[in-house]
Simulated assay, not measured.
Amino acid sequence: MKILCLHGGNQNAQTFQKQLDAAIKVIGNSETAALFDFIDAPIRCAASLAEGRAVCNFFDNITIAEISEAHQWLTSKINAGGPYDGVIGFSQGATLVSTYLLYRQWYSHEESPLFRFAVFISGSIPLEVLKELGVPVPRAAEHVVEEAELRRRADLGPLPSHVSLARQAMFNSDDCFGLNLNKVPLELKIRIPTVHIWGANDPGFPASIHLAGLCDPYIRKTYTHNDAHEVPQDMEDAQQLGQLVLWCMQRSIWPGHLRAQ
């Protein structure tokens, strides 16, 4: 299987490869063959280097215009380097993938999915994108995201009230941190196997739960590690990450799932 790997903001492909190295070794020890394609984002950050290489962004601001430009870039990369069986995205890379999948399902629903599975690490789905696609976004959902962003900027952990509501949000389709998932059209639910990983100490974890809620619950797995907004590096977490990627890979080729596509 060929898997596209998209790093987070202010990072590069080399950094992301090192972050996933332990998980990739777990996959390599299995009977499932995989080729991982790590690529740099198109926007170089000014005067910023990581280990001798420029760090990059897929977009500088989460606006419809910049996300659209990033989608065009991703399409060209897929056409040049693909086809890909799956994709792993961290943070900004995960946001790029989630929005790309939703736009394609809404505007090109007659076409086959470009990826058979997706792994989101500290992923999110911008509420502005949902609005642009016609999804009702209550003020309560916007308030949750705003509170989380304030905590992030202040370098604080998650809001206690968010932590207390996390489990309820995962299983309450009427109120997933303010979003009513029952009012989201089926065409805007990601229907390929997905894995969602986030940190218990990441103040932005409600956005990851929003994204998980927009994915088919029957072919979805979630995992919470004990760190913040990062690719987990603890050996136990890396083992879990590797096993979850393997599950996603294997689930994507189950005969039942292939017929559903």
Rank of each mutant, 00 (worst) to 15 (best):
L74V: 11
S68H: 04
C56D: 01
I88K: 10
Q72F: 03
I88E: 01
D60V: 02
A65D: 15
A65H: 10
S91W: 09
F59M: 07
A70G: 08
V55N: 06
I88W: 05
F59W: 15
F90D: 00
F90Y: 15
Q92T: 05
V97L: 11
I67W: 10
E66Q: 15
G81F: 14
I64W: 10
D60A: 10
D85C: 06
I62D: 13
S91A: 15
N57G: 07
A80I: 01
C56K: 12
I88R: 04
D60G: 10
F90K: 00
N61M: 12
A65F: 10
F59A: 13
N79W: 05
G89A: 09
L96D: 02
F58D: 02
Y84N: 01
V55E: 02
G81Q: 12
F58L: 03
I78A: 09
P83K: 03
P83M: 08
G93T: 02
A65N: 09
T63K: 04
C56P: 01
G81C: 08
I67K: 11
D85K: 09
F58Q: 05
A80V: 01
E66S: 13
H71A: 06
F58G: 10
G82I: 01
F58P: 00
F58E: 11
P83Y: 11
A94T: 00
T63D: 06
N61I: 02
S91L: 07
W73Y: 15
I88A: 06
Q72G: 07
C56I: 00
V97Q: 01
I64F: 09
F59R: 14
Q92R: 04
D60M: 11
S76V: 02
T95A: 14
F58V: 03
P83V: 02
S91R: 10
T75V: 13
G93Y: 04
E66N: 08
F58A: 04
E66A: 12
V87P: 00
D85I: 02
L74A: 07
W73T: 05
Q72P: 02
L96T: 04
T63L: 07
G93V: 01
N61E: 13
Q92M: 15
